[in-house]
Amino acid sequence: MNNDLKARIASLLEEQQEMLLSEWAQELQAQGRQQGAISDKDLKQQCKEFLTLFRDAVQGEEGGKGENLRNMLGNLARSRAENGFTPTETATFVFSFKKPLYTVLHKEFSKDSNTLIEVIWGVNQSLDRLGLYTTEVTQSAREEVIRRQQQDMLELSTPVVSLAEGILALPLIGTLDSARTQVVMESLLQTIVTTGSTVAIIDITGVPTVDTLVAQHLLKTVTAARLMGADCIISGIRPQIAQTIVHLGVELGNVITKATLASAFKIALDMQGMKISRVAPVGAMTSKA
C-alpha cells in the first residue's frame, strides 16, 4: 500500500469514526454474552482508543510500527485475562472490527476493485496479526497467573508451627515433590533459626505415599537440620508406609521415627527436659461456678 492510500484510509477512519464505532458496538453485541464481565462504558472507551491508535498506525506515525497500538492491546488482553475472558473472546474484540471497517472501505473503493482488494488484504493482515497478538498475550498472562498461584500454594501448604518452647512441628499434607520439598525444607530450617528451636517434628500423617524420592527428601531435611544443630523426629508413619520404606530399601539411619505425632511430641519434650502433667482441671471449676 502506498502512502496516499494509507492517508486516504486514515482520513476515512477519521470521518466515519462515529459510524464505525456504533457498527462495531453492534457487532460485539451480536457476538453474544461474554463470559467475562466488562461494562458498556469501558468497552466503548476501549473501542475508541483502539480506533484512534489504529488510525495512527495506518498513517505510519511513530515509524509505522504501531507500537502504541500493540501496547494498548497488550494491556487490554492482560486485564481481560485476569477478568476471566477466554482468548477467543479477546481476539473477537479485534476481529469483529473487520465487518464495519470493510463496509466503509467497500463504499469508498467500490469503483476500483483492484485497490479495494489491495486495501482489504492489507487491513485484513494487520487485524489478524493484532488479533493473534492478543491471544498470545492472554496466554502468557494466564501462565503468569498459574505460576503465581503455584508459588502461593507452595507457601500456603507448608506451615511450620511451634508446639512448645524449642519444639517445632511441620505437618505435611499431600504429595511431596522436589519443588515442594525444597520450600518445606527451607521454611523449616529458617524457622529453626528464628525461633531457636532444637527439635522439629515432621509429621507425615497427611502424606499419601512415600516413594524413594520422598524418603530421600525427608532424610536430606533431617540431615540439614542436624548440621545446624537441631534434631528431627518423623512421625505419622502409617503401616503401609513403613512397609514401602522397608521394601524400597531406604535406609533411615538413626532418624527417630514415631507412629503418631503425640508420641513424637512426648520424645521432643523429654529431649527438652520438659513434661506434661495432669493437674486439677481449672477450666471446669470456673465454669461450674
Binding site: 497488550g74 492482560r78 497478538y133 498470545e136 498475550v137 502468557s140 498472562a141 503468569e144
Partner: peptide, 9 residues
C-alpha cells in the same frame, strides 16, 4: 507490570 516480551520468550 509483568514483562511479556512475546519474541524474547
Amino acid at each position: 507490570m509483568p514483562r511479556l516480551a512475546t519474541k524474547k520468550i
